[in-house]
Design a protein around this nucleic acid. Structure first.
Length: 162
DNA sequence: GTTGCCGAGGCAG
DNA sequence: CTGCCTCGGCAAC
């Protein structure tokens, strides 16, 4: 039950991979790399997918085994719903809220997503506001913009086109 | 386009 | 327990 960390280059910094007994338990962004290169089959596999993803290929991360180590019941439900959104997909905070409880919880959905422990694999960047503006992002809206652009979206003036 | 009220949850005080 | 903030939404200027 030991926890293994590694990191790979991504965007302007690194993605920190955290795994535990064959499950991905964390993927976070950092400007610095505090760990070694991937050394397990899971991290190798993920690393390969991530680099192809960054090259612009439509990568499906839904086959990666994940496990949530923490989070309230509500958080887990939000992350579980969001994980199913396919590559290139776009949904609103309200859409997620309706599927977890009801539409009044859209703001709470935002709070849960701000605590998303597994970036990209749980694609919280595919959640935007109802008026098609981007909404927030813990690691910076520029990063969110980068991910959405990778997936083929056209963004102008902090707003997804069409 | 901008303002203002509403909202559930989480947390500091 | 109260008050304040948050990765939103909607109505109304």
């Amino acid at each position: 039950m030991d926890r293994i960390y590694s990191c790979i280059k991504f965007y302007r910094g690194y993605l920190i991979i955290e795994e535990e007994s064959g499950y991905l338990t964390g993927l976070s962004y950092s400007s610095r790399c505090e760990f070694g290169e991937p050394s397990t089959s899971l991290s190798h596999r993920l690393s390969k997918l991530i680099s192809r993803y960054e090259e612009g290929f439509p990568i499906d991360f839904r086959g990666i085994p994940i496990s949530f180590r923490y989070g309230s019941e509500f958080d887990i439900m939000v992350w579980t719903v969001v994980r199913k959104i396919p590559y290139g997909g776009l949904r609103t905070y309200k859409w997620v809220a309706e599927r977890v409880l009801d539409s009044r919880y859209s703001r709470v959905v935002g709070r849960s997503l701000s605590k998303n422990p597994i970036l990209i694999v749980v694609p919280c960047h595919r959640i935007i506001k109802s008026d098609y503006t981007l909404g927030g992002f813990t690691d910076g809206v520029e990063f969110k913009k980068y991910l959405l652009t990778l997936e083929g979206h056209d963004i102008r003036d902090n707003k997804v086109i069409r």
